[in-house]
Design a protein around this nucleic acid. Structure first.
Lengths: 236, 236
DNA sequence: AACTACAACTTGTATATACAAGTAATGTTT
DNA sequence: AAACATTACTTGTATATACAAGTTGTAGTT
């Protein structure tokens, strides 16, 4: 039997999708909470829980006496404050090429965060992806996930879906926090080739440790960005 | 009669204060939701609303069946999500040298955000500061503030105080949001000299536009970081 | 025409209740 | 002693209800 999502999450997913797909546009009012109750056949506290989350993530703003105003694309979602590359750039502009398909391997020695014994034993699902913005390689992502109870994960298709979308919808795993280090470096030979740049070209490097709602499941990610044409952008 | 805070906010304020003051320490469990109900004489949904906020801001983490675990330090600090350099590094480790004292001048052409007519007319208070971490130059800040009703600003001492502390305490101006661009570059000659690095040394560059609670007052800032020894660190 | 008061909406806060689901310690059986 | 089942906790989800407070349009008054 499939884990059924709680109602408020279902509503959240639907509304979020509708906002992203333009069913509601920036400045529009969502249906009132009472209307949403009727539409989704739940009570107001449940609707409000879904809306709270949309507010938190910047999809809508609420105004007492007026309604829920659609803010458009999520704000505050530059790659700096968020977890995924996709959410930072927007799915439509981002083409992904898998360099290394998800595979089980030992943990890389070069990881800049320390991992637990449990993670070490479980091994690591490793993947490398190169992401293109307007047909130019801009991001190179290395993702490492401990192999803990993620059935059929390696067989999933990542081409143009966000890793975190998949985790959220398929496994009910959500990001609850994390830490990151950021620095300017000169990429190594491999990176220079991937980005088609000269030796000494400055590259942005982000090392991230991303905690999830599943206990013990921490995702490690390393992102390199060629910022010479596309600077990272974010709000706060 | 003073605006009374809603109950869930009162509870939030109390718990937050207790966490910051060490009444509860990192790893401790908060009293259970039912205990908190008795303590604060409210019902569970009210307590849960207060806890939700603490979770959102990273003060606690919840685990079903177990309890609310105190996470300790406030999250979301770190230069990437915050406004000032001081708040990211901590005042005690940061020594500041003024390269260009606050002076009135025309706006720099090189500013990477567009400014309004009003700002242009008012002119710009310009300053440059070099910041040392453990006696090594790590940050170079350029700050530009429109000259709008900030009496005696130029005569203030900035040596070891945060700009934003001064704005808050002297002028009651607070940061309400902003946007930033971040990229990896190779610094120019001037920067290489300031940082004592070779040509081609990668440097992190942040361009920021910081909105304040005073209408029309937007602060523009450019920060260069030599991340070769001190990577920027942040949580989210 | 301009203002006022009201009515009908909206979201915000709070209570009371119920059951589901996860955790941990305890007691029982093997 | 080890494995299992029970129990008493914890947080998670959901409903039903009530009233407060802010917004907006409308009808009535000046």
């Amino acid at each position: 039997m499939q884990n059924t999502l709680p109602q408020y999450k279902k509503v959240y997913e639907i509304l979020r999708k509708h906002i992203l797909e333009g069913v509601y546009n920036e400045g529009d009012l969502l249906p009132s909470e009472n209307e949403l109750c009727l539409i989704h056949r739940v009570t107001r506290p449940t609707i409000r829980k879904a809306l709270d989350r949309l507010v938190n993530e910047g999809y809508i703003k609420k105004q007492q006496g007026k309604g829920s105003i659609v803010a458009g694309r999520p704000k505050g979602v530059g790659i700096l404050s968020l977890t995924g590359t996709t959410s930072a750039i927007g799915q439509e502009n981002l083409i992904t090429k898998i360099i290394v398909k998800p595979e089980l391997r030992q943990w890389d020695k070069a990881i800049s965060f320390s991992i637990t014994e449990q993670e070490k034993e479980a091994g690591c699902i490793y993947m490398e992806r190169l992401r293109f913005v307007e047909n130019k390689p801009v991001f190179f992502d290395i993702t490492m996930i401990p192999n803990l109870n993620l059935p059929r994960f390696s067989s999933l298709k990542f081409e143009n879906r966000s890793l975190f979308d998949i985790l959220r919808t398929k496994y009910q795993i959500e990001v609850i926090g994390g830490e990151q280090k950021i620095q300017a470096t000169t990429g190594d030979k491999k990176l220079q080739k991937l980005f088609s740049v000269d030796t000494g070209h400055p590259v942005l490097q982000l090392d991230r440790k991303i905690e999830t709602s599943r206990i013990g499941l921490t995702i490690y990610s390393q992102v390199f960005c060629n910022t010479s044409e596309y600077a990272l952008y974010g709000t706060f």
